[in-house]
């Protein structure tokens, strides 16, 4: 566990040293703040003291920002050869993958913590449902974790960060949009399958404050699959 934390800490420091973290935080907060408070179906139009406007905006902004966070995690190590250095230390492939995953989760977590004043502001002007709000944050965090694990796998496949970004974005697009669109056009088993795979199906349910085990299983399954595939991608160097 110590090795996981050491790797995660280095990655988080690297995010902040390379300005990636600052740029993403400013863009995320600016983007979500603008659409939550100032533009379109903003928080004042809903007529209720809730953060649905923010959660809907963050649902999209995080979707685009996460591939930008994850693209370098393993692709850069592959390119510079530091992966060899890392994997010959007293760490396992799994610890490296989990450490990198944790670092990206921490960065997204920091971004979400900076939006907590939104909740306190809304709570000061109306009766905010704190349970539903916390569920909204939980859904954003779980959605982010899912896309981080997908992005990490994409990053493990290549030494080119742009390729990693595009693979991650395309895979994310399937969960974010494609499966939802297919679910609307299919009936029976196929329709149910696509609906089950759709991110919005599970995100909407959880962000409204309904904690359903099926949603949790969905998010944890994607996270586990992404991490295992990334680990396999590292381990396959051992295969002849």
């Amino acid at each position: 566990m110590q090795a996981v934390w050491v790797i995660a800490k280095r990655e988080v420091n690297s995010f902040f040293d390379s300005l990636v973290a600052y740029i993403l935080l400013v863009l995320f907060l600016g983007f979500s703040g603008f659409f939550t408070w100032l533009f379109g179906a903003d928080i004042f139009l809903s007529g209720q003291a809730n953060l649905q406007a923010f959660f809907s905006t963050a649902y999209w902004s995080l979707f685009f920002f996460i591939p930008a966070i994850t693209m370098r995690l393993l692709a850069e190590e592959n390119k510079t050869g530091t992966i060899e250095l890392l994997l010959t230390k007293a760490v396992t492939d799994r610890q490296v993958v989990v450490g990198k995953f944790l670092s990206a989760c921490i960065l997204v977590g920091i971004a979400l913590i900076f939006t907590l004043p939104y909740a306190f502001t809304v709570a000061s002007i109306g009766p905010l449902d704190w349970g539903a709000t916390l569920c909204g944050y939980l859904s954003l965090m779980l959605m982010s974790a899912s896309y981080i694990s997908i992005g990490l796998y994409a990053s493990s496949l290549t030494s080119n960060q742009v390729v990693a970004f595009l693979i991650s974005l395309f895979a994310g697009l399937c969960f974010h949009v494609l499966f939802d669109a297919l679910a609307a056009n299919f009936t029976g088993f196929a329709g149910m399958l696509f609906s089950t795979l759709s991110m919005s199906e599970h995100f909407d349910s959880l962000s409204r404050g309904v904690i359903d085990t099926r949603d949790l299983i969905y998010f944890f399954s994607i996270v586990a699959a992404g991490l295992l595939l990334a680990e396999f991608s590292l381990t396959k160097r051992n295969l002849e």
Partner: peptide, 10 residues
């Protein structure tokens, strides 16, 4: 290792 890979940002 060969080519001495290092984290140049550290």
């Amino acid at each position: 290792p060969e080519n001495n890979p290092l984290y140049t940002d550290m």
